[in-house]
Amino acid sequence: MKKRSNLRGLLLLITGLLTTVLLSGCDSKFVVFDPQGPVAQTQYKLIILSAILCAIVVIPVLAITVFIVLRYRDKPGNTAPYKPHWDDSKVLEILWWGIPIVIIVILGGYTARDTYALARTPKTAVTDVKPVEIQVTSLDWKWLFMYPEQNIATVNYVHIPAGVQVHFELTSDAPMNSFWIPQLGGQEYTMPGMAMSLWLQADKTGSFYGTGANFSGKEFAHMRFNVTSESQADFNKWVDGVKGKSHELTEAGYNELAIPGKSEEQTFSSYPTELFDSIVKKNGGHHMDMDMDENNDDKVDTDEQKSDSKNAHDMDDMSDMDMSNMNSSEMNHK
């Protein structure tokens, strides 16, 4: 009798806690379940698919566990069969090796399909719109965003045009971090000496939460940034407004920015054009193509430097890498 009441108290407690959790969940923001772009959408679908496939195994297993434990308790008068020497069944073995294999094959197929799909440049409905390039550098403990086509820079916030592909080139001039805007898509690491590539797109206008996801030292918790997606017209207006101010990011200004510490949001009307590439080169890119430098007698011109730094980035996905390098070389000729 006493056991019963204990059990009931326990169930009450669990129900109470579950209710708390669920209720508190309702008015909160499950950003991963709120995809606002094609990349996040693909990932969201995979999350749901994998959860369903797992549930196909998990729920029956839990049910079988409860059934077996209730039925085969060692109690006097239990009439359930007892077969202490029954220890093998080919049919059952084939069943529980086979079902997981089938599920893994299905899930593996979808995983492969989407992994390759997301590694390519995303296709969008509006094909005639040129993607926006944004170069991202994680610093101790702030984010620097540079727009090579517009030649403007921001710290700890970023504006993007809605419905346009955005190509983020990621590096770090500090310990590694990871660049994550959950509503637009999954994260990718920023690493010193490498330029990583991440394609994202916001379908609609809005304001999204962005964050550093990989621990990078003392004030890591404050590496948040706000993403504003706005119409192309508003975006252009914003760019013009930024360019209109005379607050330039100089070489010296960058070095000051790179000193470890927190930062407010900042805006710069221009920055040294080579800054991003020089950050990548400074942190290892340069050393990796030392052999090539030696082969050239004189100082190499910009174009060759570009093709050299391609080798420095060889950790990146190749198809993306070629593109990003081409883009940045083109820019230099402008």
């Binding site: 996040a40 990932q43 995979l46 999350i47 995983t111 989407d114 959950p182 990718e188 996801a213």
Partner: peptide, 9 residues
């Protein structure tokens, strides 16, 4: 599931 891991990682 690698692409989904981009959101969990």
């Amino acid at each position: 599931v690698a692409p989904a891991d981009y959101q969990y990682h």
